[in-house]
Design a protein around this nucleic acid. Structure first.
Length: 200
DNA sequence: TGCCCGATTAACT
DNA sequence: GTTAATCGGGCAA
């Protein structure tokens, strides 16, 4: 049986926590699946919400690790983060994609789509499928409605540039499960492209 | 106060 | 490929 992830799991740098979340199981109200894609946001990172200091929106990031930071993206979608590092550092991991495994019918109804690959493949989609709203901001990750289980076995974890940002866009702080079909976008292959994509 | 931009998504052409 | 939806933060005035 997988073991539960405790709050102390998050008392480390986001750059340690983020790759170690790949393969972990996240359930919210008994619905969810395996985390296959995350991004790290360190407080020294210009792309992080906490970079310019504390506001009403990001206040949870400045609190203790092991709590959920939920924010409104583009005024429309909700995005879920896990706060990391010792209290006050204001770093967090964005949950970008999940392989849905438990509560498929509930997630399909919330999302209004049938294809399992479209249920949780993106930060906004994850929150819609799992029923996460701003009301979840500040909740502890080791207590209901959250359940987190550590991964079991060895997985191929890949890294690459983060998605949808303009500041510090070159930093390879997006982590994923190699070869997963539930990613929001595939990771570039190890071979580097020098120009436009070759036609297929 | 007003304006621009953003850790996005779905529906367009 | 482009664009609308829709709102909080940051910064200029």
């Amino acid at each position: 049986m997988p073991r539960r992830i405790k709050r102390a799991f998050f008392s480390r740098s986001v750059h340690e926590v983020a790759p170690n979340l790949i393969g972990a199981t996240l359930l919210v109200g008994g619905v969810g699946g395996r985390i296959v894609e995350v991004e790290a946001y360190h407080h020294t990172d210009p792309a992080a919400h906490s970079f310019r200091g504390r506001t009403a929106r990001n206040a949870v990031m400045f609190g203790p690790p092991g709590y959920a930071y939920v924010y409104r993206s583009y005024g429309i979608h909700w995005c879920l983060n896990f706060v990391c590092e010792p209290e006050g550092s204001a770093s967090a991991v964005l949950i970008r994609a999940i392989e849905p495994t438990i509560g498929l019918a509930v997630m399909r109804r919330r999302r209004g789509v049938a294809d399992a690959r479209l249920l949780c493949s993106g930060p906004g989609r994850v929150c819609e499928a799992l029923g996460i709203t701003g009301a979840y901001n500040g909740l502890a990750l080791d207590a209901p409605p959250f359940e987190l289980f550590a991964r079991t076995g060895h997985l191929k974890i890949v890294a690459g540039p983060r998605i949808g940002i303009t500041k510090a866009a070159e930093k390879p702080w997006r982590y994923g499960l190699g070869g997963s079909s539930f990613l929001s976008k595939p990771f570039a292959s190890s071979s580097r492209s020098t120009g436009r994509m070759a036609p297929r």
